[in-house]
């Protein structure tokens, strides 16, 4: 399933690019991400807790994350919930584009494959959840900017 989102940020693109380069900081903004550990190189492991309708998933797994100074972040990885029997594999790309002197936007494209029980849930529900997660991420990211 392909997801595309654009997040507006009232900060210059350089600052956003700088933020995207700090992977633990970015991860902290993803709703439901917990216990992120750097494994060395570009490898990270961690857990993602997602509540989807009546069901809570706890997906643990690894990801390879790279970010460039020009404001592009690429992540590729996957997670599994062993108890429920569900999994996610995703390739995500986020790119900063300047909009004006103090405005920019982050364009996020994600190609996500679901397996097990997750694959049995309806697309509209999953899309809606993804939208909500991106909204929360955007809010967290904006908050992270105002803090720094």
């Amino acid at each position: 399933m392909i997801f595309e989102h654009t997040i507006a940020v009232d900060a210059p693109s350089e600052a956003v690019a700088h933020f995207l380069a700090d992977i633990p900081k970015v991860a902290a903004c993803v709703p439901g991400v917990e216990d992120v550990t750097a494994l060395g190189g570009d490898e990270y492991e961690g857990r993602l807790r997602v509540r989807l309708g009546p069901v809570s998933f706890s997906l643990t797994g690894q990801a390879e994350v790279q970010s460039d100074a020009d404001g592009t972040l690429r992540a590729r990885g996957g997670g599994r919930d062993r108890r429920i029997g569900a999994g996610v594999d995703a390739t995500i790309e986020a790119r900063v584009e300047p909009l004006g002197p103090g405005d920019s936007e982050v364009r996020v494209t994600a190609d996500v494959q679901f397996s097990g029980r997750l694959a049995e849930l309806g697309q509209p529900l999953i899309r809606r959840k993804a939208d909500a997660m991106v909204r929360d991420f955007a809010r967290n990211m904006r908050a992270a900017f105002s803090d720094s």
């Binding site: 009546p54 069901v55 108890r83 429920i84 029997g85 029980r117 049995e120």
Partner: peptide, 9 residues
């Protein structure tokens, strides 16, 4: 139903 489908445990 949720328990049968292992969606709630």
């Amino acid at each position: 139903v949720l328990m049968k489908q292992s969606l709630a445990l």
